[in-house]
Nucleic acid binder design. Structure first.
Lengths: 352, 352
DNA sequence: GTTAGCACTCATTTGTCTAGAGTGCTAATA
DNA sequence: TATTAGCACTCTAGACAAATGAGTGCTAAC
């Protein structure tokens, strides 16, 4: 871009520089056209006065180094996952989001005020819609969150409805059965005690500490205490039930034309536990994470790339969102969308 | 089935009887093999000493009457939706469920005690797993249900968490914002008043009547009353947010090999609103409903059949469950599964 | 170091042919 | 009159061959 290079013989750019440029253009071109790119067309695109023959030499080297591969002898070159990785890490710029798209994201996230579940499902739909790939959203790890409030509601003689409200206003609720009849007053006193002391504890600790602390402070009320402990134990014994929301499976069909592969991908997406594990892998990382092709541990996903980002509240990572698309996706377009959506989601949870 | 008909020339069964038999066998055979069935093989299967030529005549008649069609001139016959309809209504027996399968259903439904959402999602997975088709579950129409309890929890100065527990122990909850500061005592008195008077009203009526009744009984406390009315209005203003759970999309790929059709089907499944409408169509009917091919108003589903059944509580239909599969599915196998699962689900909701 | 030229490879497309399954029609049969 | 055998006809699916063309690797010249 430093001017027009019409002269056939100009001082050649440094070797490495040219390798870099050609690799980037190949990846870019392949992402755009989905066609293996050959030396002739590449020479034209580059417009640096390098002949196809020279480019062929360079391409041969790049192939040898594992950045490119050939579907078959007489085809052009296609990036390997290593090629994409180089592109994503080094070549790629991010196309900034239009204010239009930003507005759509903010609005979508803001409008679903009907609780966390609907917030997450609509975020998932949003991702699928904007990227035109399959959207994936993992629900928060509740053990990582802090409690704001615990309440017990007696709904029947021996059934109690437990509401746990976290600092991020996530509401967990369940109905527990108790063997003894407990008065609403008693329930209130237990919840008051819990709320007072442990509002800011992460749920995991509460499970242990609450019970411990209860027994210390009320040692004399043995009978009631036993009941309170039993109650609390049941209340906090939440099977950590993570959810995975998936939307836009139909986009998979568009991207792959091998019917077997499509089926395997859909099956993998139905196997939610596997995916949740995968999403959780990146919980410690910041920003957008890109997992390309063979970098992915799940065999059936190795023709795909997974773009994810975490959402959090008060500095604590809750879960992650992302999309699954073909390795040859337009990373520069997708990454900013995931990034912005994750941030918008975090904000929405904080302000909920 | 009235004995073995070895003799080549036996008194022919009545014409209509033979039409009936042949149509049934064609449908059955096609369901089993997925191959268009021709006159020769049909003659063998039937084993009634009827020659292929005769069968050809009958098949021609059946084709003319719209029960069968030919993919092309030199292919065998394939049932039309009218053919399947005849088969389902008249020919088909139901293969009774094995106690094995019954146990699986009961167990699956019983085990998910973690609230309605998880009950419905696991029912959906169950349907997909058992039938090997795509499972569909529509969540209850909440306006049709009756309330058991209403509670208000003050979680912040101006934010109130509302819990609505229905007679079927479905828990609806939301956070509402109020403009004035309300004490927990006041909230308790409002909920007590609501609970006392309207526990058994369907939610739709509550919306109107509660407000009405409140204003009659407490006319003097004008200030508080206004607040109570505002509060209640917000609490009951639940956008009727139906959910649709879908699982086992991958089975669609197995059944159809036209990649375009697969994509259109997946897209339709993602368009949940359309499907909910479709499921609600059968809300008034009892038992299992079968919608075959072109009977379905949605064009993209006209190569599929939809088998649904309602689930209910206390005689009130809440929602419906079902599966989507190819028209050539084994109806006699699938229908009992849907039937039994719907009943098990209804029971699980009642006992929840 | 770069390039032109050329022989070579290989997937894809197109056309042709054949085998096979199944039909519809007609004339013979019981 | 209903049934059947026989036959010509239709159409698909699969196999095969030839043509096409994009792209490569190598070599020799610049």
């Amino acid at each position: 871009m430093t001017g027009n290079n019409q002269s056939l013989k100009k001082p050649a750019a440094s070797l490495e520089d040219r390798f870099h440029k050609i690799l980037c253009v190949i990846v870019q071109s392949y992402i755009e056209t989905t066609e293996p790119v050959g030396s002739r067309s590449l020479s034209k695109i580059l417009d640096l006065g390098i002949s196809p023959a020279t480019i062929r030499n360079i391409m041969a080297d790049l192939t040898e180094q594992g950045f490119l591969e050939q579907p078959h002898t007489s085809a052009g070159r296609v990036p390997t996952y290593k090629g994409y990785r180089y592109f994503v890490d080094i070549c790629m710029g991010q196309t900034p989001l239009s204010t239009e798209v930003k507005r759509v994201i903010e609005q979508a996230v803001r409008e679903s005020s009907q609780g966390l579940v609907s917030l997450l499902t609509s975020t998932c739909q949003l991702l699928a819609g904007l990227t035109q790939f399959t959207g994936i959203v993992a629900s928060p790890r509740i053990s990582q969150t802090r409690l704001r409030k615990v309440e017990f509601l007696k709904i029947e003689e021996r059934r109690i409805y437990v509401v746990l409200i976290t600092q991020s206003n996530m509401v967990l609720h369940k109905i527990i059965e108790v063997s003894e009849t407990l008065s609403q007053d008693f329930l209130n006193s237990v919840s008051a005690s819990l709320n007072r002391q442990f509002e800011t504890e992460p749920l995991d600790d509460v499970r242990e500490q609450v019970l411990q602390s209860l027994s210390e402070s009320h040692e004399k009320y043995n009978q009631l205490l036993a009941q309170a402990v039993r109650l609390s134990r049941k209340a906090f014994d939440l099977t950590e039930e993570r959810q995975l929301y998936v939307d836009g499976q139909s986009f998979i069909v568009k991207e792959f034309n091998d019917i077997e592969k499509i089926q395997r991908l859909l099956e993998t997406l139905e196997e939610k536990i596997t995916l949740i594990g995968l999403m959780d892998n990146g919980m410690d990382e910041e920003g957008v994470q890109v997992t390309i092709g063979e970098e992915n541990p799940i065999t059936d996903l190795q023709t795909c790339s997974l773009i994810t980002a975490n959402y959090s509240n008060g500095g604590i990572v809750l879960g992650s969102i992302g999309i699954l698309g073909p390795t040859r996706m337009d990373y520069s377009r997708v990454i900013p969308i995931i990034d912005y959506t994750a941030k918008a989601l975090s904000e929405a949870i904080a302000n909920q």
